[in-house]
Simulated scan of single mutants.
Amino acid sequence: VPLDLTRPLASVTLTGPTGTLLAEAAPAGAAVARGLLAGAGLLASEQLGLAEWCLTETVRHTRERHQFNRPVGSFQALKHRMAQLWLEVVSARAAARNAADALATGSPDAPLAVAVAQAHCSRTAVHAAEECVQLHGGIGMTWEHPAHLYLKRAKADALVYGTAGRHQETVAELMELPAP
């Protein structure tokens, strides 16, 4: 059973398969690496969209929800949380767009741009989804609201092409920074 129910898993059973060699090990490995790099770069854009939806939905909800005869979003503590999240989303947008541009133009810096985007967008998507669930209160974890689905998607996306920590290690390797 997958964490993200919107992405079902499948089992494939091959019986007596025959095949044709398409490429030798080195070119095949390079093609797979390029595909994984493109996938990670595209996933950063999905994570950005997820974070943007969560922020927009949270702001909308806190404007409409009233407590003590005031909109919940007018409380200073919640304003600060949403402002911090907005800053993270803006930074994630810059990282995701940079990665997409680097991939589209075939830039030699694409591996670095994708690693930076994944390291940042992954954490931003999870944080945005967590804040969305928390600031929606009890309804955020019910089937009546999709916030919990976005949290599950963000958590699953954070693992697909490697964790944020693994992408940070990649940035360190590409920039020739010594490990602590």
Rank of each mutant, 00 (worst) to 15 (best):
W86G: 07
E88R: 15
G19I: 04
L87W: 07
G140Y: 01
T18Y: 05
C54S: 14
S122F: 00
R34Q: 14
A125F: 14
A38Y: 04
V160D: 09
A164E: 13
L48M: 09
D4R: 09
V32P: 03
M175P: 00
A95N: 04
M141E: 10
Q76S: 14
A129Y: 01
R63W: 06
G137V: 04
C54L: 08
V32G: 05
A92K: 03
G165A: 11
E176K: 11
P108N: 12
G137Q: 04
R93P: 02
A147V: 00
E176P: 00
T15G: 04
G73M: 11
A115W: 01
E131Y: 02
V90Q: 14
H136P: 03
P180V: 06
G137F: 05
L85H: 01
G73H: 12
L78P: 00
W86H: 14
R7C: 10
G106T: 10
P17L: 12
G49Y: 12
A104T: 12
V1R: 13
A158H: 13
E24H: 09
R93G: 08
R60A: 14
T105D: 09
V133Y: 07
A95M: 04
A95Y: 03
D101E: 11
G137Y: 01
G16F: 10
T105R: 15
A94R: 06
R60L: 11
A156V: 11
E46R: 13
R7P: 05
L112S: 05
P111N: 02
G39W: 10
G165M: 08
A129P: 06
Q168F: 08
Q67M: 15
W53Q: 11
R60W: 11
L85E: 04
L151V: 01
A156R: 14
H61R: 05
A100P: 02
E176Y: 06
L135R: 08
E176W: 02
Q118R: 15
A33Y: 07
G35V: 03
Q118Y: 01
L48N: 07
T56Y: 05
G39F: 06
R123S: 05
P146R: 05
P17Q: 10
P2V: 09
V116E: 12
A154R: 03
E130N: 06
M82D: 03
F75C: 06
H120A: 12
S74Y: 12
L43Y: 10
A38S: 13
C54R: 01
T62G: 00
A156G: 08
A40I: 07
V126P: 01
A154S: 09
W53N: 10
G39N: 08
L21G: 02
L36I: 11
V133K: 06
A100D: 13
A25K: 11
V116F: 04
L21V: 14
P27G: 05
L22T: 12
E52Y: 06
L22F: 01
A44L: 13
G39P: 08
V72P: 03
R34H: 09
V59G: 01
A147R: 00
G162H: 11
R153M: 10
A31V: 10
R60F: 10
N98Q: 14
L149V: 02
K155G: 04
E173R: 15
H167P: 11
A40V: 07
M141G: 05
L87P: 00
W53A: 13
E24P: 02
C54Y: 04
L5V: 12
V89A: 07
G16I: 06
A51Q: 02
H148L: 05
N98S: 14
V72A: 12
A25C: 02
V116S: 09
A25L: 11
V116W: 03
M175F: 00
Q118S: 15
R93V: 03
